[in-house]
Nucleic acid binder design. Structure first.
Length: 291
DNA sequence: AGGATAGCCTGCGGGC
DNA sequence: TGCCCGCAGGCTATCC
């Protein structure tokens, strides 16, 4: 699924289509992919049935925000829609409504035209595996308090000192810590491996065993790898498409992910692979020593 | 209490 | 050709 760079590409490609737009009729085909919350009389969040209004029908989009792998469509009246793409989710702008709804297209928003002589456009959420989903809140602060507060800083801003502090006592592999969204939001399996390779740190090393210098180097590698992937349009292994349905090309630049058994691009040693935190992990035994 | 593991889903590619 | 298996970019609930 999309990790931070892919979600950021979706955000950037959808921005021109959505900002300032009024949302028309909304169609939710599968109710079970969406969760809606309002502020109760006691001020506490209250789960409610999803309505078209909760899905921003009638609202004007004022902002498109991202934290880690999550995207939020902000309306000018405070309503907010959070989208998580999971493994196979796509959020795609369409110039026309398809004659037949594509399989697994769970939600479709009408984007009203800016001028009367133009036709409406559409925004579609499609997610075959349904690991992703939609969350709506009647106030933007609810998204922060109910959902985004569980996330660490966005991985694009991950600082060495923050990472060092977060892992100082962590008795798990450093790769598992990188995948933990509470430590930094946005890193997934691809970019965890790529960042560890760049920082020359073995993925199975106990997180607490990293020196402060290691952590500083690793945080810089995370930022570099993510920024480079954003420039490359994200990684399209199979499914990923940006908001305009275009694939990325950064997969061509992966140094280790998906290259098990192939030569290390730095030293020519054969890349090794194993399972860490339940995920396939690839590294160079020579460039990323165990010690 | 933190950390590992199974489970949620569909689709695709490889091997037989 | 076709079927079955394993595997996939994420996260959570559950167990130890």
């Amino acid at each position: 699924m999309p990790e931070l760079p892919e979600v950021e590409r979706v955000r950037r490609t959808l921005e021109p289509h959505l900002l300032g737009r009024e949302i028309g009729p909304v169609r939710l085909r599968r109710r079970d992919i969406c969760e809606s919350w309002t502020t109760g009389p006691d001020g506490k969040p209250k789960r409610v049935r999803t309505t078209p209004a909760a899905l921003l029908q009638g609202a004007v989009v004022s902002d498109l925000r991202r934290l880690g792998k999550q995207l939020a469509v902000v309306a000018d009246d405070g309503r907010i829609l959070c989208v998580h793409l999971g493994m196979s989710g796509k959020l795609i702008w369409r110039a026309q409504r398809p004659r037949v709804a594509p399989k697994h297209e769970h939600a479709l928003w009408t984007l009203l035209p800016f001028n009367r002589d133009q036709l409406p456009e559409y925004l579609a959420f499609r997610d075959p595996r349904r690991f992703g989903g939609l969350w709506t809140f009647d106030r933007a602060e609810l998204l922060e308090s109910a959902r985004w507060s569980a996330l660490g800083p966005d991985a694009l801003d991950l600082s060495g000192p923050h990472l060092a502090r977060a892992i100082v006592a962590a008795k798990r592999p450093i790769k598992a810590a990188l995948l933990d969204q509470a430590i930094a939001a946005g890193i997934g399996n691809i970019y965890a491996d790529e960042a560890l390779f760049r920082a020359r740190i073995h993925p199975a090393r106990l997180a607490a065993s990293l020196t402060r210098a290691d952590a500083v180097r690793l945080a810089a590698a995370v930022r570099h790898v993510l920024k480079s992937a954003i420039r490359g349009g994200g990684s399209t292994l199979r499914d990923y498409r940006d908001g305009n349905d275009q694939p990325g090309s950064h997969q061509l630049r992966h140094a280790v992910y998906g290259r098990s058994g192939k030569d290390c691009l730095r030293c020519r040693a054969a890349l090794a692979s194993t399972t860490i935190a339940g995920r396939t992990t690839v590294w160079c035994p020579r460039c990323q020593p165990e010690a």
